[in-house]
Each structure stands twice: as C-alpha cells, then as structure tokens.
C-alpha cells in the first residue's frame, strides 16, 4: 500500500521582478505523479532550485498544490480538518539543527510535539524515552541542547519527530551542516529507523554517497521528476546525471575508471564496501588462475 501518492502535482507562484509592471508566474513543480510504498528508503536528488524542497513541503501540507493532488495515506493534504493527522503521519527534519530545537532540556524538546497534539502526560514520557533510545540519545535526556554537537542536535530533532509516531519522515538536507562523524551518526539513525522501525524515509541530499544507501533514487530537474530507479541503475547513467548537474559517487567513478582499464567490474557500483568486495574476489580468482 502506498503511504504517499501524488497525481499531476503542480505548484506555481507569482514573482514580481524589478522594472516589470506585471508579475510572472513561476512553475516550481510541474505535473508530478509518483507513489511511495510503505517502508521504502528513497533519496531525492537534483540541483539547487530543482524543486526538491518545494516537493517535500507538499508532503506534509506545509504547501498545497496549485493543481493536482497529494495523498498521505488516504488523506488529501488539502483537507484542512486532517492537517494534524497529516503532519504526525509525515514528519519533517530540516537542515539547520539550531532552528528546530525549542526547549532548554533535551527530553522536553522531544516531548514538545506530542504535548501539542494532546497526548496524555504518561504516554508523552513513554514516547520521549522510546524516541531518544531509537536515535541513541537516551543518555542525554537531561542535557541542554546547546551543549550538544551538530550531529547530536540533529538526532534530538529526529527524536522530536519520532515522538509524534510518524509513519514517514522527510529529511530536507538534514546532514548538510554536519561534520563527517555527525553525518555518519545521522545516516546510521536514518537507516535504523527505516530497517528496524519500518519508517518510510525520504532523504533530500546533495551528497551522492548518501543517496547510494537508499533503495530508490528520484531525481528532479526544473520541477519535474526526470529519473527514478535503484542506485545501481541511476549511477550507471553517468552522462545523463552530469547533464542534470549531478555526479556519480567517487566510488562509482573509481569503479568506472577500473572497468575502462580492463577490470571486469559490474556497472553502477556505488558503495565502498561493494567495490572493495568485488575487487578482492577478482584478485583472489586471478591469483588462483596464476597458481
């Protein structure tokens, strides 16, 4: 069953430019139709201004379509009466951790969402405990958020979304401001939520190595959905990607260079471990043949 579905989703806005009498109509999203199945882990790629964030904001009713429809489970995002159900089903984590933390103690911050939803106090604490455990931050429940590292703050923000028991979480460049370890922490958390808790994940990113971890990649360009497939199938189409302002991960670039030099490696390898394993196996076979 699909958890998110869009049909001919179009979003346009008016823009007033200097020296022009009339406003112009800008098309941010143009006729997007796709569906996301429960439990999927999808990465969304595309250059700056391609419509990724605008799309994300449609998936929990922060924006409403100019034309077309978005469904979250069976709810239409335009149905105002269901707004809070929609937002607790599809949660969102943004780029800057400092803009998402409201309380002065970690556990209170995580409890903020469910409290606003009118969840009984007893249950709020249960949810806070469980969410902090899920992101590996239980030891920091009584800490002050401003004392935490960027990766830790971002995990607190994720716990805050978790506490609302979402079925789907949209990460809008949530690792862009983090250092390498912070990125790794957040990505591990994202993968665990997906694998262990069955939460559907949509990850918007500019890091190709992060997209390589997803089960499916969707690529946007000028407000349209232009590619949709597995990381392997996407990253084996290097020229098309480059035309869209994207790249293949360094791992894929290395595998491609080795294949061109005559090593029989498979196409679209995009994870470091996978490449190392194929190379080790190939090396073992060559040594055996020589012996």
């Amino acid at each position: 069953m699909s958890i998110i579905r869009t049909e001919e989703l179009t979003y346009q806005y008016k823009s007033y430019e200097e020296g022009q009498e009339q406003e112009t109509l800008k098309q941010a999203l143009q006729g997007l139709s796709f569906s996301v199945e429960k439990g999927e882990f999808i990465a969304i790629l595309g250059r700056n201004g391609s419509g990724k964030s605008t799309l994300a904001k449609h998936l929990n009713a922060l924006l409403l379509p100019s034309e077309g429809t978005v469904w979250v489970e069976e709810m239409k995002t335009s149905d105002e009466a269901r707004l809070w159900d929609i937002r607790s089903t599809a949660g969102m984590v943004f780029q800057n951790p400092d803009n998402q933390i409201v309380a002065t103690v970690v556990e209170e911050d995580v409890g903020f969402g469910p409290e606003n939803m009118g969840v009984p106090t007893e249950e709020i604490w249960e949810r806070v405990d469980k969410s902090l455990k899920a992101v590996g931050m239980a030891a920091y429940a009584k800490s002050a958020p401003h004392r935490l590292s960027g990766g830790q703050k971002q995990r607190v923000a994720i716990a805050g979304v978790m506490a609302m028991k979402p079925k789907c979480i949209i990460f809008d460049e949530s690792t862009a401001m983090l250092d390498p370890i912070g990125r790794r922490e957040v990505l591990r958390t994202v993968r665990e939520l997906n694998e262990k808790e069955g939460i559907t994940v949509l990850l918007i990113t500019h890091y190709m190595e992060e997209a390589a971890l997803a089960g499916r990649i969707m690529i946007m360009d000028r407000g349209r959905l232009v590619m949709d497939g597995t990381p392997r199938s996407i990253f084996s189409r290097r020229q098309e990607l480059e035309a869209l302002g994207l790249q293949v991960p360094q791992t894929t670039a290395l595998a491609d260079a080795l294949r061109e030099s005559g090593l029989p490696l498979s196409e679209g390898i995009c994870q470091e471990e996978d490449l190392a394993e194929e190379l080790a196996a190939l090396y073992g076979r060559r040594k055996e043949a020589q012996a």
Binding site: R47, N48, Q95, M177, H206, M208, G245, L246, Q247
Partner: peptide, 10 residues
Amino acid sequence: TAGLDPEGRE
C-alpha cells in the same frame, strides 16, 4: 561549498 549542489561545488 556547504549546501551547494555538485555542479555549484565544482
């Protein structure tokens, strides 16, 4: 280069 797409970064 934080927050730039691969082309912008390049």
